[in-house]
Design a protein around this nucleic acid. Structure first.
Lengths: 337, 337
DNA sequence: GTTAGCAGTCGGTAGACTCGAGTGCTACCG
DNA sequence: CGGTAGCACTCGAGTCTACCGACTGCTAAC
């Protein structure tokens, strides 16, 4: 084995050991657990080299090495081939998606919990950007005297609805419904400004109302974040500097919008794993994010992800995220959930 | 002042000081901060008495006193008159409910966050029991070829919907819709077993389907828990024994069902404040719960609550919970959100 | 019943010491 | 020249001790 190659193997070993034990890894530990065919002294030399290059760090002089963010990055880029999930977990995922059948929101929520369970980390599921979702059909339905329900079916099978007040009935309502449908069908739910005119004031008013309500709501829903396994964050405390860090993390997840835009942003740049300081957000300095988009009928429908400490089993997380996103996309296929 | 009366005052002082500082309260501290007209030695005597009676405890021999659960209980029962919220907070609540207007779920969710912000503790909002909600109207609407939407308007103004597959159209669908409405209107959403028969197999099938879907969903929704301010739990860590306790708490909140039934159970017994060991649930040994039901048109519609450490500002929590529940009920009044 | 005064208790902190895990270096070897 | 053995050195973690100070509990006096 060449020297450079061996150094890479040493790095790999250090990452794997550190992920497993959460303890700084000693040269001896590496030679004991791996069959490198060299002595610990040689590994020590390699380690100093790796430290000079920025892949490893020492918490203090007389301690073992731990990976730096750069070290994790190298590990992820070079040693995490798209491995499969262990059979047990693969079964769990398949079972979950086979037996579940719920409304879309519930499904996404429970998916986040599944992912959290699989990886033992917090998990997030992000819906598609409102601008990217097409409207398949829309209509207005009278549900009570004075009350109208706007119903919109979206490309990903979601059915959104919004309650409106209106006295319209019968023909007028039917006309409004048609106009409403024409106004937004086929388009996205990005805010529409153009106002259609049917010549009937009351009808126009209702349609305008409906369009506004639905687009507003869509924006709200699309920015929604489903979070599963927040308790894991508390359990992982020791990975974070202070308990205040954990609190801030939870806060951020509750605020949703930061995380949603972060996730979208990362994926826009084709990033699937973001490690520690690679995250621009301060709260995530000690965290890594592993993402996978899921698709419905070829179109990007959303993202599933895992949020854990940088000291994370990346291979496992990647496998889990891939499996879940794939199955989720498949389940959403039959157009209506 | 009589001796017994003074002892109560001492207890009050200890609770208030401990809530403020999180430090065991010394006799000196009490005499310094209150004007009892007696010396610290007397307070010490009172304290030993209070300790004998089970209201106070000493973490160790040479330390100040902290309230026991029983001490908090006495405090809550005797010293927390239904005080109002400070003006600033009262304004915040009023503003929130004046400006917000969202779909029901969003409203409840944001209400929990409001309450969390007000009290600096985690907050929960529980919807009404499915068995207690009456159906105001129900119908089936075709939204796409092969797809039917069941829409149910509930007594509290919520609009639930469920997507169904069915090829029925026109007259048949209209008939199914009428039958569906008749089947569940006015009743609760408790699972219905009786099957109606219209003489048309296809119609019957759809109606049965719809009823089942809607009642299942209602059960699911009614057991839903809106949690706000989970990050506060992490921040309050020091109040709990270990970080594992926090993790278990978060887990429980994620599971929802335990908390929901606990809250319902407490309220059924007319309990508004449950302190530490009064909770049967192990995870809540170090927590207190402050609850207030909210009503819509005179009927119990749900519950808002605060979940914090036993060392909690009960007066403030009670005031906040009362204000929020009242405003929430008022806002839900106009029958449709 | 209240108080002043004082002895006694105990947690928390700082310093001294030891232990051991691990490194870095140097000299040596194939 | 890469690899290795061996050894000195470093430094964190744990243990022990002493000490300080915060409070109490008690007793004797008011």
């Amino acid at each position: 084995m060449e020297a450079a190659e061996r150094r890479a193997t040493v790095l790999k070993a250090v990452v794997e050991e550190y992920v497993r034990t959460a303890q700084p890894v000693a040269s001896q530990t590496v030679t004991d657990s791996r069959d490198l065919g060299v002595s610990s002294a040689t590994v020590r030399n390699d380690m100093t080299q790796l430290e000079r290059e920025g892949f490893l760090a020492q918490p203090h002089t007389s301690a073992g090495r731990i990976p730096t963010d750069q070290g994790y990055r190298y590990f992820v880029d070079h040693f995490t081939s798209a491995g499969g999930l262990p059979v047990g977990q693969r079964r769990a995922v398949a079972d979950f998606f086979a037996t579940t059948h719920r409304a879309l929101e519930d499904l996404l929520h429970e998916t986040s919990q599944l992912l959290a369970k699989l990886t033992s980390h917090a998990a997030v599921v992000v819906g598609p950007d409102a601008d990217a979702v097409r409207v398949r059909s829309a209509q207005l339905v009278a549900i009570e005297p004075g009350t109208v329900l706007a119903v919109v079916v979206l490309g990903n099978g979601a059915v959104e609805r919004e309650v409106l007040r209106s006295e319209l009935e019968g023909d007028q309502l039917a006309r409004a419904s048609r106009t409403f449908d024409e106004a937004i069908r086929g388009g996205t739910l990005a805010p529409v400004t153009e106002s259609t005119s049917t010549g009937d004031r009351a009808v126009d008013a209702l349609v305008t109302d409906a369009v506004r309500a639905v687009t507003t709501r869509a924006r709200h829903v699309s920015d929604h974040l489903y979070v599963g396994g927040v308790s894991r964050l508390a359990a992982e405390q020791d990975a974070f500097a202070t308990t205040a860090t954990t609190a801030r993390l939870l806060e951020m997840l509750e605020e949703q919008v930061v995380v949603v835009s972060l996730v979208r942003d990362l994926l826009d740049h084709g990033v699937h794993v973001s490690i520690g300081s690679e995250n621009d957000v301060d709260e995530l300095r000690d965290c890594s994010i592993v993402l996978a988009p899921y698709q419905v009928e070829g179109a990007l429908a959303g993202t599933v992800g895992v949020l854990g400490p940088t000291r994370m089993d990346y291979a496992q997380a990647l496998a889990a995220v891939a499996a879940v996103s794939q199955q989720l996309g498949r389940l959403l296929l039959p157009s209506v959930s």
